[in-house]
């Protein structure tokens, strides 16, 4: 188990390429997939969930980290003082 992980760790470049290939495949797959049970307009746009995923993820990081930095973040002993 440990050896497999260390092997993968050493070849992280390969992993990275595989990951990007996977992303391409998922988007390509979306063009061929049969749509049924569609609920709203987004279900009809090719690759909608890819855009939703990346924008949602980045937006969430920016908003949450931003709020945390400017307002909510305090030292760990804040309540002990």
């Amino acid at each position: 188990m440990k050896r497999i992980l260390e092997y993968l760790n050493k070849h992280s470049q390969v992993l990275k390429r595989l990951f990007f290939a996977f992303l391409l495949v998922t988007v390509a797959y979306d063009f061929f997939v049969k749509r049924h049970g569609t609920h709203f307009f987004g279900d009809l746009i090719m690759g909608f969930w890819s855009v939703f995923g990346i924008l949602g993820c980045l937006g969430m990081i920016v908003v949450c980290k931003g709020l945390s930095h400017v307002w909510l973040e305090k030292e760990e002993d804040y309540y002990d003082k």
Partner: peptide, 23 residues
Amino acid sequence: YTAYHLSETLQLMGFTGLGFYIM
């Protein structure tokens, strides 16, 4: 396990992973 649900999930997860990789 429908094809579209699989496609939706894989896209969401994959591109969230990309977002993490960037940030």
